[in-house]
Amino acid sequence: MSILEAGLRGGTVAILLLVAILFLRDSGRTPAGRTSALFLLSAVGYVICSAPGVASLDTPLGLSLLAVSLGHPALFWMWAAATFDDEFKPSWRRGVAWLGLVALGMWSLFDSQPIVGFAYHALSLLFVGLAAWHALAGREADLVEARRRLRMLLAVWVASYGAVLIVADVVSPGSSVSAPFSTLNAVGLAMKTFAIALLWLGVTHQASAVSPTASDQRSSPRPEAPAAGPLDQQEAALLGALRELMEGQKLHRHDGLTLAALAARLAIPEYRLRRLINRRLGHRNFSSFVNSYRLAEARAALADPVQANVPILTIALDTGFQSLAPFNRAFKTTAGMTPREYRRQHLTRPEPGFAT
Rank of each mutant, 00 (worst) to 15 (best):
E5D: 08
E5H: 13
G7Q: 08
V13N: 05
V19D: 10
I21G: 08
D26S: 10
S27N: 05
S36I: 11
L38T: 10
L38M: 15
L40G: 01
S42I: 00
G53C: 08
V54R: 03
A67H: 03
P73C: 09
A81R: 11
T83E: 06
F84G: 14
E87Q: 07
E87S: 00
W92L: 12
V96M: 13
M106V: 14
M106F: 06
P114G: 12
P114S: 07
G117A: 11
Y120Q: 08
Y120E: 02
L125Q: 12
L126D: 03
L143A: 09
L143M: 10
R151L: 00
M152R: 14
L153D: 05
L154S: 01
A159H: 09
A159S: 00
A159D: 00
Y161V: 01
A163P: 09
V164H: 01
D169R: 13
S172Q: 10
G174E: 04
S182F: 00
S182H: 00
N185I: 08
V187D: 05
A190L: 11
K192F: 00
I196D: 01
L199W: 11
V203C: 10
A209L: 12
V210E: 01
V210I: 12
D216L: 14
S220W: 14
P221M: 11
A225M: 07
P226Y: 05
A227C: 11
G229M: 02
L231H: 10
Q233D: 15
Q234G: 06
Q234I: 10
A237C: 09
G240A: 13
G240C: 05
L245F: 03
E247R: 12
K250W: 08
L251W: 11
G256A: 05
R265I: 03
A267H: 08
A267Q: 15
H283T: 09
S287H: 12
S288C: 12
N291P: 10
Y293M: 07
L295Y: 04
R299N: 03
R299D: 07
A303C: 01
Q307D: 04
P311F: 11
P311R: 12
D318A: 14
G320V: 13
L324R: 10
N328F: 15
A330T: 08
F331K: 04
T334P: 15
H346F: 02
H346N: 01
H346I: 10
T348F: 05
P350E: 08
G353T: 11
A355Y: 13
